[in-house]
């Protein structure tokens, strides 16, 4: 069984995240870069499955600038067997469609039985890449799973929302994405950290993926406006007097909070 986990490097969720107002891209320099937390949950599934099932290979795949090597190595420290990083100058500022196309080509190059992804990243929050990749590869996708069961032939899982739980299944090869309801990821242990440096790690350019990916054939998406986050406005102060109860109720009602 070959499981490929799509790993995304993101600016640390707990730090300040900035947008470059010239390019509209995330400012990667200003904040610490980490493996996306939702991806760690996906890795947790793949690694714990591999621990219980001999002959399973877990591959961490990422498309990112070369500096993401350290982040991808964290996936190896958690327990993935090898890493593949797609690095190419031409991919700078790649949008969702180009990203999906490159990942699909890389996945065909690597080979897979199951692809695991987070349902949406904590930076872009597009949530489209897993579906786009599945579409390009013409395989079924089970989105936003809270639990996953896997055997040699099929993958099943629970898609849980606040109102309903859907039981989904698909024959392999398939793509799944896990939601934040999925099990907590493990911490890389000390031995894993030391072993990660010795694991195979491949850096590939798009020319090496065996597909003719044309980056500039036509505009894929056009950004019409870039704006910084508006500064926080000062809140409404309700003064404690005989009218304060009414004022407070009116404020809550106006903002549709009651």
């Amino acid at each position: 069984m070959k499981i490929v986990v799509l790993v995304k490097e993101v600016p640390d969720t707990w730090g300040e995240r900035l947008l470059d107002l010239e390019t509209g891209l995330a400012d990667r320099v200003s904040s610490e870069r980490v493996i996306d937390e939702i991806v760690e949950r996906g890795l947790e599934f793949a690694i714990s499955f591999a621990e219980k099932n001999d002959g399973t290979e877990v591959i961490a795949l990422s498309m990112a600038p070369e500096e993401a090597t350290g982040t991808l190595r964290k996936a190896l420290a958690m327990g993935a067997d090898r890493g593949v990083l797609i690095v190419d100058e031409a991919l700078h500022g790649a949008d969702i469609t180009l990203t999906a196309q490159v990942l699909a080509a890389a996945l065909e190059h690597i080979g897979f039985d199951l692809i695991v992804s987070g349902d949406q990243s904590t930076d872009g929050a597009g949530g489209v890449v897993p579906s786009a990749v599945a579409e390009l590869l013409d395989i079924p996708q089970l989105p936003r799973l809270a639990t996953v069961d896997l055997n040699e032939k099929e993958v099943t899982g629970a898609h849980v929302t606040d109102r309903i739980t859907l039981s989904l299944s698909a024959p392999l090869p398939a793509m799944i994405s896990v939601s934040e309801r999925f099990a907590e990821p493990r911490f890389p242990n000390f031995k894993g950290i030391m072993a990660a440096k010795k694991k195979p790690f491949e850096v590939l350019g798009i020319a090496e993926l065996g597909k003719n990916i044309s980056v500039l054939d036509r505009p894929r998406s056009i950004m019409t406006e870039i704006a910084g986050k508006p500064p926080r406005e000062s809140g409404v102060k309700v003064t404690a007097d005989e009218n304060s109860g009414r004022d407070l109720a009116e404020f809550l009602k106006k903002n549709q909070l009651i």
Binding site: F187, P188, F190, M194, K197
Partner: peptide
């Protein structure tokens, strides 16, 4: 190099 990561972890 490994120790820095161990400590951070």
């Amino acid at each position: 190099e490994d120790f820095v990561e161990i400590l951070g972890g």
